[in-house]
């Protein structure tokens, strides 16, 4: 149970766990922040790029998200969920805010084809290919109905509102709302997620 995270209990997180690192970050610990960077930068960038498409904008937003983690680490509440979920929420919100501004939306479609990486990869994160995670998520997405899967992935990976998602899928608003919820619940159970 995450709520007990800060108490001296057998279930308390280990000193290097993300939750504990964020606690140290909130007190200005730059080493702890660099650890957090190593742990999350690849996932933040991957998610932001799914939503924004444009590589330059994605890097810019990823940088903003990571600085936001530094700035607001004290606002992380372990009682509300994991540090990873909190950081990915910050990342998704910021990416979605960016993409929903009219200018960015126009750019996104134009630049959607431009997907080249800059050549100098970060040696540190080069290996952070979460293959197991990828396989498990793919398997669990495969267990959703087509409408559940499309609703969830359009909303999360593309940043569409449920109204836009309903338009794209030609489905009723109420149906998409419901599919987003029951699709995520089925994913939650398949991935064994608990809070």
């Amino acid at each position: 149970m995450r709520a007990a995270a800060r108490e001296e209990q057998p279930g308390a997180p280990r000193p290097g766990a993300l939750e504990t690192l964020l606690d140290r970050v909130s007190r200005g610990d730059r080493d702890a922040f660099e650890s957090v960077y190593t742990a999350v930068a690849g996932s933040v960038l991957g998610l932001v790029r799914r939503v924004l498409r444009d590589p330059a904008q994605s890097e810019e937003v990823t940088q903003e998200v990571l600085i936001e983690v530094w700035r607001s680490a004290a606002r992380f509440d372990p009682g509300q969920g994991s540090a990873m979920a909190w950081i990915m929420m910050l990342a998704h919100r910021r990416a979605v805010d960016r993409v929903r501004s009219a200018q960015a939306s126009a750019d996104r479609e134009h630049k959607a084809a431009v997907r080249d990486h800059s050549p100098a990869f970060d040696e540190v994160s080069e290996q952070v290919e979460r293959r197991l995670e990828r396989e498990q998520v793919r398997r669990c997405l495969g267990q959703l109905t087509e409408l559940q899967r499309e609703s969830v992935t359009l909303a999360y990976y593309r940043g569409f509102t449920y109204r836009e998602t309903a338009d794209l899928l030609g489905a009723a608003l109420g149906t998409v709302k419901t599919r987003l919820r029951d699709g995520l619940i089925r994913l939650r159970d398949c991935l064994g997620v608990s809070v």
Partner: peptide
């Protein structure tokens, strides 16, 4: 949802 993000991790420059 965070697990969906972990599954698309990329290599940051």
């Amino acid at each position: 949802a965070a697990r969906l993000a972990l599954a698309v991790a990329e290599v940051p420059p």
